[in-house]
Design a protein around this nucleic acid. Structure first.
Lengths: 105, 105
DNA sequence: CGGAATACATCATATCACGAAGTATTCGGT
DNA sequence: ACCGAATACTTCGTGATATGATGTATTCCG
């Protein structure tokens, strides 16, 4: 998918990936793979950004002697998904403008 | 609208604004206003980018003693709009993922 | 006469996706 | 027992991009 189009979707995709329960980085990437592809460097940047914004919380835990960071969505993060849905109406109207058959007369 | 969402739409909006006939910068902004807002600096950056990409051609003309640059969409630009429509199917499937009621079980 | 509108241009800045590279552990196959 | 793949997270540099600020110059309207 075009990188510019992805920009508006990635953050909210990551939030959607954890909205039904805690998850961690590597698994988020795999869960999102059928939906949208993103690299590790991209994901961890996004997770940090979302944490800084208060959209999710982090908890470090040991899993088989290996560190894992579990991410959980917050109320603010859920709200962000709702805001996205609201904004989507605008996006659709832009899409309609772009794909309309004939012009502004 | 969220700036990240706009990023995927602006180029194609500008192309859509000239797809039914030549237009110029200031008018494009006004024509797009009901659809999507963009500043002059943004528009002229986009027009330059689209020209470099061969999506449109420019023609300078004098209008009431004042310079005007008229932009016309090319076949490649029209194709770009078609590509956008194709990609939109992916976008919709991402949207469905984000807004699905319940999780990946 | 003056300010708003028209019209285009340049620059600096902030945000962001991504590849590359690194560290460290576990697991499966032979 | 060994080795490569998979797991898991981190940091750094780069390139693309939207935007505000600022500038220049002309026309139109009250």
């Amino acid at each position: 998918m075009d990188i510019q189009l992805k920009r508006g979707l990635l953050d909210v995709c990551v939030l959607a990936a954890i909205k039904d329960g805690e998850s961690y980085g590597y698994r988020i990437i795999k869960d999102l793979k059928p939906c949208i592809e993103l690299s590790e460097s991209t994901l961890y940047t996004i997770l940090k950004r979302l944490e800084a914004a208060g959209s999710l919380t982090v908890r470090s835990d040991e899993h088989n002697g290996r560190l894992r960071k579990y991410y959980r969505i917050t109320a603010s993060g859920l709200r962000r998904i709702e805001d996205f849905k609201t904004e989507w109406k605008e996006v659709i109207s832009v899409y309609d403008f772009v794909t309309r058959e004939d012009g502004h007369e």
